[in-house]
Design a protein around this nucleic acid. Structure first.
Lengths: 134, 134
DNA sequence: GTAATATAAGACTGGAATAGTCGTATTTAT
DNA sequence: ATAAATACGACTATTCCAGTCTTATATTAC
């Protein structure tokens, strides 16, 4: 209930690890996976998404790996989640994309009132940056 | 991601419906289910949990049903969720009961920093009462 | 130029959680 | 007695998620 997914957790762990080391340093996915006892394949996929989104820079080939593309204070948890999950974090289906498709959309009476909670959650996630997680 | 379950949604819809009508009025589960186009059986189970927890009062038999046991401003979303899910809402496994069993508990580096987010989520859910959802 | 070590990307699988259903017992007003 | 309601547990179906596997590509070292 309301939990972050493992993918997001792994992403945050990896990003934090990068943020704690000198800027520009490169880390292999395997290296991070071993260090934190995490599934390498899962972490790799997460890092690939973060690469596509420009959160992280990848260098292929031997001695390759990932490094932070932005300053930790520029990275919001909200956008990290959005990138990894490929959708904004929402409290209910109706606040996600295509939310009108919710089976009870029309009869639903709590959508509007819950909007406040959604808004506050947004603020919470937007105001938390990687810097604060270091 | 971070979404409330259908059970919680249905519970909130039912509670809100009661809160909008005169105190003490009794509503049958079936009646509410039809009105909001919701699974009757699911809603019934939710209302039974709310009854056990003293959130709602049930009267059995013909013309029976449920009515609010407390004032809307005394009912916090956090406790409604706890009752229906039978566990506190948490952002990650490690903040739930028995969280030390998380497979990466020891290697995890984001537990402490995420604690702030968990705390803020707690505040958000505790400060939102049924009254504000009406 | 070949081997070794990385990322890239997609398909596949198993298991857990969730949503929903069904059946039966019990309670109570009429 | 009957009808209408809650109580409760078992069951099923489906969806989601974590994790695995496979293959391709890029880069460096030698």
């Amino acid at each position: 209930m309301l939990q972050l997914s493992k993918k997001v957790e792994y992403g945050l762990i990896a990003l934090r690890h990068m943020a704690m080391n000198p800027r520009g340093q490169v880390f292999a996915a395997k290296e991070i996976a071993v260090k934190f006892d995490i599934s390498y394949e899962l972490l790799a996929k997460v890092l690939q998404k973060l690469t596509k989104a420009g959160v992280v820079i990848s260098t292929q080939g031997m001695h390759g790996g990932y490094s932070l593309a932005k300053k930790p204070n520029e990275l919001r948890v909200s956008s990290i989640i959005s990138v990894i999950e490929e959708e904004r974090p929402t409290i209910a289906e109706c606040y996600a994309e295509g939310g009108e498709d919710c089976s009870i959309f029309n009869a639903c009476t709590i959508r509007k009132p819950l909007g406040k909670m959604q808004h506050n959650l947004n603020l919470l996630l937007e105001n938390t940056t990687l810097e604060q997680i270091v």
